[in-house]
Amino acid sequence: MNELVNRMGWTLEQRARIKQIFLLLTIAAVFGIGVSIALLVMGDSGGWLLLGIAIACWTATYLTLKYTRKSQP
């Protein structure tokens, strides 16, 4: 029974890796938002597409991690 309890949930290494991946994605999203704002200031309408992609990717990852964490015991 004790072995089963030890296998439940995320390990410390898994949690650290998830935090690392989320930090890298957040940095990439901030960079993408900055580039998209620069494109919009220069008058390029492609900045809206880049802005949407950056926000959508970050939001999808955030929600996936949030609901996956809630489903873990």
Rank of each mutant, 00 (worst) to 15 (best):
G47W: 00
L50N: 00
L12F: 06
G34I: 05
G34R: 03
I27V: 15
T68I: 10
W58F: 15
A38L: 04
L50K: 03
M1C: 09
V30A: 14
Q14C: 06
D44P: 00
W58G: 07
W48I: 07
Q20D: 14
G9E: 02
T68K: 11
L25F: 15
V30F: 07
N2C: 05
L39M: 14
K70D: 14
N6R: 13
I21N: 09
I18C: 06
P73S: 04
L49D: 08
I21V: 14
Y62T: 14
I18F: 09
I33G: 08
T64M: 12
S71C: 05
M8I: 13
G9L: 01
L40E: 02
G43Y: 02
F31Q: 06
A28D: 02
I37D: 03
K19E: 13
L63D: 03
Q72M: 15
T64C: 10
I21G: 08
L39S: 11
A60L: 12
V41Y: 01
P73L: 11
G34W: 04
A38W: 02
Q14N: 10
Y62A: 14
L50Y: 01
A29K: 05
G46R: 13
Y67A: 00
L50G: 04
L4Y: 13
Q14P: 08
A38C: 03
I27Y: 04
S45I: 08
S45P: 06
L39N: 10
N6K: 14
Q20E: 15
P73F: 02
W48M: 06
Q20P: 05
P73V: 10
M8W: 09
L23I: 09
L50I: 06
S36N: 01
T11K: 13
I33C: 08
S45M: 08
L39R: 12
I27L: 15
N2K: 12
L51T: 00
G43C: 04
K70C: 05
F22D: 10
I53A: 03
F31D: 06
G43D: 04
V30H: 03
R17S: 12
K70P: 04
R15W: 07
A28M: 08
F31H: 05
E3Y: 08
T64Q: 10
T26M: 11
W10S: 13
L50H: 01
A54D: 00
R69N: 12
G9W: 01
G52W: 01
I53G: 01
L40A: 04
W58D: 10
S45T: 09
G52D: 02
L39D: 12
T11P: 07
A28N: 01
W48F: 09
E13D: 13
A56K: 01
L63M: 09
I21H: 10
P73R: 05
F22M: 13
W58I: 10
M8Q: 15
A16T: 14
D44E: 05
L4A: 15
A29S: 14
R15C: 12
A54S: 03
M42F: 05
L39H: 07
Q72V: 13
L50S: 03
I21D: 08
V41M: 01
L49K: 06
L49T: 12
I27D: 02
I18K: 08
V5E: 04
A54M: 01
C57G: 09
I37L: 09
I37W: 04
L63G: 02
Y67Q: 06
T61G: 14
